[in-house]
Simulated scan of single mutants.
Amino acid sequence: MAVLPIRITGEPVLHSIAEPVVDVDATLRTLVEDMFETMEQAPGVGLAAPQVGIGLRLFVYNWVDDDEVLWRGVAINPELWLSPIPAGEPDEDADSEGCLSIPGARYALRRADRVRLRATDLDKKVFEIEAEGWLARIFQHEYDHLDGTLYADRLDHAQSKAVAKVVRKSGWGIPGESWMPGEDDLES
């Protein structure tokens, strides 16, 4: 297994729609193992293939909920259904979100409270998970990556201006920028 460099906003693969996975083969299995290792080293709770420079529709997740239940898996060619997004302003604490592709920045974003994820696993079995709360947020965030959308793209005007300033000051927003978990001093 290997830790992979995480692409930073501006890299074209992060802003493009990912292609469906066609073959679940040894190469894909290695990619998934490397993505888990990269996510854990970063550290993060989810990681989409475009974030490591691979334009495929898959993501991994690893999160322990308040009841100490471990939610860990891979979603290949996922579909996602959302409950309506609640109206109102996001809560600065409860709705705070970060992204490994915009390291160090956290902003509040309203997301759907509940989702249904349908995907395929590495054994080519279709599964469904009904999620709420933080797990629902993780699924929405990672699914967005597969459609070329970063969470910053969904922020209100004031917060999107703040993100743009962070990106500009950091010299990001151009192709070729990445960071290496465990080596670079960046956080999400």
Rank of each mutant, 00 (worst) to 15 (best):
I85A: 14
I76A: 03
E177Q: 05
M39G: 09
W81K: 15
N62Y: 06
E11H: 01
D95F: 03
E128C: 10
M39Y: 02
P5L: 03
G53T: 07
D184K: 01
L47N: 12
P5C: 08
R57K: 06
G171V: 12
E37K: 03
K125R: 07
L155R: 07
G10L: 14
P90L: 11
R114E: 15
G171M: 11
A75Y: 12
D121P: 02
D144N: 05
D67I: 08
G182E: 15
H157Y: 02
G98L: 14
P50E: 11
E19A: 12
L70F: 07
P20T: 03
G73K: 00
L28S: 02
A152V: 07
A162N: 07
K169Y: 08
T9H: 04
L150R: 10
L70A: 15
M35A: 09
G44K: 09
R106K: 14
L56M: 12
D34H: 01
A105L: 13
D23P: 00
Q159Y: 04
L56H: 07
A26C: 09
I102F: 04
E132Q: 08
E79D: 06
R29S: 11
F139K: 06
S178H: 14
I102W: 05
R7K: 08
G53D: 11
G88N: 05
Y143G: 13
Y151F: 15
G176V: 00
M180N: 09
L80E: 14
E92D: 13
L4A: 05
K165H: 13
E79F: 11
R154N: 14
S83Y: 08
R168K: 12
L47Q: 12
I8H: 00
V32F: 04
A2E: 14
V74H: 04
P20K: 04
E33Q: 10
A87D: 13
D123Y: 01
L100P: 01
P86N: 11
V64C: 11
T27Q: 08
I6P: 12
I138L: 13
L80K: 10
V24H: 08
